[in-house]
């Protein structure tokens, strides 16, 4: 027994390595690869009565996903993901810059502080935003009291609330890669720019900013891609009028019982994800 275990741990044969990796691989195979393959297969099937699945191969689900009723949802998803990414980049860059060059001994504390809201449940944070943004919420109460408003505004269930929720949740995803990339910029290069007569802004525009570009792109990818599949934000802060792809998918499985159509939508989401990552890798290599 002990000898067999030693053989397994020694790993002088590839078989031992594969055996040690087998439990994790089986897990990934059965709960990730096969389900994803199943969804893709299902996306070509037909929806029968009462949610039954009719195995007639066809592209009807994809055609439906791109028709005039659902195409706006796809565009809206791209729009919200794009806007969130842009906002996160603009709002997050100064923070990453501050963490790298200005924070000094506070740096580690601030980095942890940045991650804490992310680790607290998203559900709970959004609930709290509901309290802030609601008709009788904190923001309206404050604005009314200080006379900025004469009647409460419905901030909740608007594109503003959705964007706020998305930016709130994804900001750390943009800041951390930016920080990692800025941290790698050699200080000597920046100092060399100063020595050669560059002012603060010139040194930033010509040296620091271009060198932090890889982090900016990584941050954008890490924000944009999860945003495409986001589901909870609109579910809580947006409402049905602003359904995104994630909500549409969820509805096909949980409410409409149209699994083939839902599978087609999920396949589109996965295709977008793979395409995005592929582009990113090509950019990284170039």
């Amino acid at each position: 027994m002990s000898r067999a275990l030693s053989w397994l741990l020694g790993g002088r044969r590839p078989l031992a390595s594969h055996l040690l990796l087998a439990p994790a691989s089986l897990w990934l195979l059965f709960l990730l690869v096969i389900p994803a393959g199943g969804l893709i297969a299902l996306s070509f099937a037909k929806n029968g009565a009462y949610g039954a699945i009719v195995w007639e191969f066809g592209l009807q689900n994809y055609r439906r996903a791109f028709d005039h009723k659902y195409l706006p949802v796809l565009f809206r998803t791209l729009g919200f993901a794009g806007a969130t990414t842009a906002l996160c980049l603009v709002l997050g860059y100064p923070v990453a810059y501050f963490l790298t060059f200005r924070a000094g001994r506070w740096r580690n504390a601030l980095l942890v502080g940045l991650m804490v809201p992310f680790w607290s449940s998203c559900l709970v944070a959004y609930y709290s935003w509901m309290i802030v943004l609601g008709k009788e919420g904190l923001l309206n109460t404050a604005l009314l009291r200080f006379g900025f408003l004469s009647a409460p505004i419905g901030f909740l269930y608007t594109p503003f609330a959705i964007l706020l929720g998305l930016v709130y949740f994804y900001l750390p995803f943009t800041i951390l890669p930016l920080y990692a990339s800025l941290d790698k910029v050699p200080r000597s290069v920046i100092e060399a720019a100063y020595d050669l007569g560059a002012g603060r802004w010139t040194a930033f525009w010509k040296v620091t900013l271009p060198l932090s570009l890889p982090g900016a792109v990584a941050g954008c990818v890490l924000t944009f891609i999860p945003c495409l599949g986001d589901f909870l934000t609109v579910e809580i802060l947006g409402g049905p009028r602003y359904y995104l792809l994630g909500n549409l998918i969820s509805n096909q499985f949980m409410m409409a019982q149209d699994w083939p159509f839902g599978s087609a939508l999920t396949s589109i989401l996965l295709a977008g994800l793979v395409g995005g990552l592929w582009l990113y890798q090509r950019w990284e290599k170039a």
Binding site: I34, L39, L42, F231, T266
Partner: peptide, 23 residues
Amino acid sequence: YDALLNVPLMMPEVALGVGLLTF
């Protein structure tokens, strides 16, 4: 293996959820 082990991180949770449900 390395690539596969990281897939659950990149996979949108909605896709993961409906995939598991159907499977």
